[in-house]
Design a protein around this nucleic acid. Structure first.
Length: 867
RNA sequence: GCCCCCGUGGCGGAAUGGUAGACGCAACGGACUUAAAAUCCGUUGUCUGGUAACGGACGUGCCGGUUCAAGUCCGGCCGGGGGCACCA
């Protein structure tokens, strides 16, 4: 055993190995290599100031993958960078008067230094920072290429306006009617905006989800729902004036239920529908109603509680199937302009919203679908008198040529008829809308466009790229500093050379993260975003790791952007991430003082079940464990943990207690336990190094306990390897601990097993390497190895030693365990049966009678069914 | 409202339909120590019989089903979490 003087010096050991790895360039991606490639990437961090536990977990998970795959012989690309544009930098500028660039670059410096002691196997030579012109100039060029290819466009539209951030937000960035960062209730404004045509790829983005086999089902489902494919029909309703005379236009609606057309009792337009807007010009009441709707849309946070309101335009729409019939045309607050045609036909009998609307405005309700097997007349009478729509499958009734058809057949028949009449056609509608990328902010990539009165929106010529941000800006007033900069926006039109204005909006920062993974592939090409051949060699990312909060946003944008880059010749690739792993959050108990203020864990002293404030002694209530956040003050600073216990202990704790996809609760006891195990590993190595290194004697000559231990080692290699492949890191750590328990027992109890013990500790070091790389290296070195463990091949197991000659299986009587038998693996069923029936416990429960049946599943179980 | 996931000891969690609770945390007992820390050895699902050796019953949210065998599969509830949400 190690003497008292010999203690594991974490600090020195960890920094020494970090230095050794760095000096040797262990983790540099090889540009020319015959090894198969493996690209490991964690979602790059936003430089907010300091690293937090979520970062530690994220990068530790990726590091396990990288180190394991490296040991398995892959050429690894494991780069790091900074998602450096964003609003917090501007807020800091506002609050502290520091330039966003200064603040951001300072944070990067601090966080980079904080990352170093974690011992991550990163290739820092490829570090990128998205706020530098060397990075963002390429996306300006790409944007102009997208523009040429028709994948970017500008249009005036209603947009989500965040009144706190003073900027537009994408649909994906509005959560529960509030801005995803500010939490402010989002308003609707009509603005000229740049859009990227993500809908162009809607079908492909949806279909390709099937091929993303190494993505979590949850994320695939979320993207599927977000894209929201619906099959239905566009239907044209010729419009009539109040007096029944025909108007020149017809109203287009989208429906997924053309089978219910015979149940139509009204049509409704969105308040933003062009026809509604036009009618409002000569109808003051309607204009007031529309204004009211637009205001309500902005002021009401809880849209779902908003009452359905409508305004009768006086117009009528001619029914496509019933000659001479028509329905009233309303403008209604619940009809969305952005979806479908911005107008609907209402069938109250089979849509709850339409029912609500019909009851409120006393419109007719007609049942046109009845459940199969029920009395249609009675059902229809009940439905038409009630207030609940029937939305399930059934049989068409009261519907002329559709009568008797199922919902699906009726849909098909209705569409066919519409197409014959040229009053509609079958179509596919997506919920997905184009990605609005204009932001009225300073700290982002300038949109490379010049607005000229004569020439319109003119792209900035290549030779004038990049359009860089001016440094001399002020943040003393709300709004966009670029807009009020005295000179920056004043330029001449590249086409006509007359005075013109620069676009002062910047890109949504999700653009930078939509292609950074490709930039990493070729070390910082100056004249192009990345080298195509290099990118094709490394991409797709083999394993991408990050939080599930990006399931739709970043991950969908990147999938789109990759397709857009392909369309413009940058790549020949559609899917950027072949494998995705979404980690859980790092949580901690919350504490509150009697006054209701949050209390930091550092100020709380635990006294059994109770908690008290360390300084004042006042009782503190313990709340549920929640995601670490500054607002709830339940954070633990990684820096402090690493200073105290070292990176290995922090990494081990992150990996060992919970499955990586689940939330992890940080506890002091947990990190202590991890720390103890790191020391235990080291002591095992110190003990083992006193044994001379020599080849393991022939297996057959070993004592029985030694043989058993050797088998254990090989089984551990197999199990840990399997667990690593399947992201079962908590199970892998448990398996490693089991092996150390076996070795400790062996060393204590059995003399003459020294060689095997030494072999076991070596195996332990190699298996522990991806998880706790520093102490593993130290063990490896203590055991006399010169080669660095980080560059040593993953251990192989001997399949013949995995299997034992005998097997122990349970013996049940009527499904209840009554004993176990150990039999030769080669034994036949009869031998199992005989051994099982021989057990006293079995005899007792058979009560002297012969068994009715004996089920033998070799190497698994024996179950005896008693008479 | 719609869709998805999850319910296992005091706690985190193991368990290709085949010996439920691996591994760890906490707790308790012991060794070492003047003492403490550290370390090492042991006990630990619940109830219950027995001085003991050793047994018995129950047990994976609840109710039912399939099966020789169910934490695992199927149906129905209850509870928790997440996503979407006036998407026609």
């Amino acid at each position: 055993m190690a003497s008292a003087e010999e203690r594991y010096n974490v600090r020195e050991t960890e920094s020494a190995w970090q230095k050794a790895w760095s000096e040797r360039g262990c983790f540099k991606a090889e540009s020319a290599s015959t090894k198969p490639k493996y690209y490991v990437l964690e979602m790059f961090p936003y430089p907010s100031g300091r690293i937090h536990m979520g970062h530690v977990r994220n990068y530790t998970l990726g590091d396990v993958v990288a180190r394991f795959k490296k040991a398995q012989g892959y050429n690894i690309l494991h780069p790091m960078g900074w998602d450096a544009f964003g609003l917090p930098a501007e807020n800091a500028a506002l609050e502290r008067g520091v330039h966003p660039g200064t603040w951001t670059r300072q944070n990067i410096k601090v966080m980079r230094e904080q990352f170093m002691p974690l011992g991550l196997s990163l290739d820092w030579a490829r570090e990128i920072s998205t706020c530098e012109p060397e990075y963002y100039k390429h996306e300006q060029k790409m944007f102009l290429d997208f523009l040429k290819a028709g994948l970017a466009y500008r249009k005036e539209s209603w947009v989500n306006w965040d009144p706190v951030e003073h900027t537009v937000l994408a649909n994906e960035q509005v959560i529960d009617g509030r801005g995803w960062r500010s939490g402010a209730v989002v308003e609707q404004r009509k603005l000229n905006q740049w859009f990227l045509k993500i809908t162009h790829f809607a079908e492909d983005l949806l279909k390709s989800i099937d091929g993303l086999e190494r993505w979590p089902d949850k994320v695939r489902l979320m993207q599927t729902n977000w894209i929201g494919r619906s099959e239905g029909a566009r239907v044209f309703w010729p419009l009539l004036n109040a007096d029944g005379s025909a108007r020149s236009e017809s109203l287009e609606v989208f429906t997924t239920r053309p089978d219910t057309l015979f149940g139509a009792s009204f049509c409704a337009l969105s308040p933003q529908h062009p026809i509604a807007v036009k009618l409002a010009e000569s109808d003051a009441k309607l204009a007031a109603f529309i204004a009211e709707c637009n205001r309500a849309g902005t002021a009401t946070a809880s849209i779902e509680t908003a009452e359905k309101m409508g305004h009768d335009t006086g117009l009528r729409a001619a029914h496509p199937f019933i000659a001479g019939a028509s329905v009233p045309v309303y403008v209604a607050n619940f009809v969305l302009m952005e979806y479908g045609a911005g107008a609907i036909f209402g069938c109250p009998g089979h849509d709850q919203r339409d029912m609500d609307f019909a009851r409120k405005y006393k419109l007719s309700v007609k049942c046109v679908v009845a459940p199969k097997g029920e009395d249609a007349k009675a059902f229809a009478a009940k439905l038409e008198a009630g207030s609940e729509a029937f939305v399930e499958d059934g049989i068409a009734i009261n519907s002329d040529f559709l009568n008797g058809l199922s919902v699906n057949d009726a849909k098909r028949a209705a569409i066919a008829k519409l197409e014959t009449l040229k009053l509609g056609k079958g179509t596919v509608q997506y919920r997905l809308r184009d990605w609005g990328v204009s932001r009225q902010r300073y700290w982002g990539c300038p949109i490379p466009i010049i607005h000229c009165e004569a020439c319109g929106a003119v792209p900035v010529p290549d030779k004038d790229l990049p359009v860089t941000l001016p440094e001399d800006v002020t943040f003393d007033k709300p709004g966009n500093p670029l807009e009020r900069h005295p000179t920056w926006k004043h330029v001449v039109c590249p086409a006509c050379k007359k005075p013109a204005l620069r676009e002062t909006d910047t890109f949504d920062t999700f653009i930078e993260s939509s292609w950074y993974f490709a930039r990493f592939c070729s070390p910082q090409a100056a004249d192009k975003p990345f080298d195509k051949a290099e990118a094709m060699r490394w991409l797709p990312v083999d394993q991408y790791i990050g939080g599930v909060e990006h399931a739709v946003l970043h991950l969908l944008y990147s999938r789109f952007f990759t397709r857009a880059m392909q369309a413009c010749g940058y790549l020949d690739l559609k899917e950027p991430f072949a494998g995705l792993f979404t980690q859980g959050m790092v949580c901690h108990e919350t504490y509150k003082s009697p006054e209701g203020a949050w209390v930091e864990p550092g100020e709380v002293r635990k006294d059994g079940e109770k908690a008290v404030h360390a300084k004042t002694g006042a009782a503190v209530t313990i709340g549920r464990s929640e995601k670490m956040s500054k607002s709830k003050k339940n954070t633990v600073d990684p820096q402090r943990i690493i200073d105290t216990y070292g990176a290995d202990a922090a990494r081990l704790f992150m990996l060992s207690d919970s499955p990586p996809e689940r939330d992890l609760e940080w506890t002091d006891a947990g990190i202590e336990g991890a720390w103890r195990y790191v020391n235990r590993l080291w002591r095992l190595a110190i003990t083992a190094k006193t044994i001379p290194a020599r080849a393991l004697p022939n297996f057959a000559t070993l004592s029985a306990p030694a043989q058993k231990a050797v088998r254990e080692c090989h089984r551990a290699i197999k199990d840990v390897t399997d667990d690593l492949e399947r992201f079962r890191y908590n199970a892998a750590v448990a398996r490693i601990r089991e092996l150390s328990n076996t070795l400790t027992e062996l060393n204590h109890a059995e003399p003459g097993t020294a060689d095997v013990f030494r072999f076991g500790v070596e195996t332990l070091a190699r298996l522990a390497n991806p998880f706790v790389p520093h102490v593993a290296e130290e063990m490896w070195r203590e055991l006399g190895h010169v080669a660095i463990l980080a560059e040593t091949a993953w251990p192989a197991f001997d399949a013949s030693l995995i299997e034992d000659d005998t097997v122990t299986v349970g013996v049940q009587v009527n499904g209840k365990l009554r004993g176990t038998i150990t039999v030769a693996k080669a034994a036949d069923q009869k031998a199992y049966e005989a051994a099982a029936l021989d057990l006293p416990g079995v005899q007792k429960h058979l009560d002297g009678k012969p068994p009715r049946k004996v089920i033998v599943v070799r190497e698994k179980i024996v179950n005896i069914v008693a008479a």
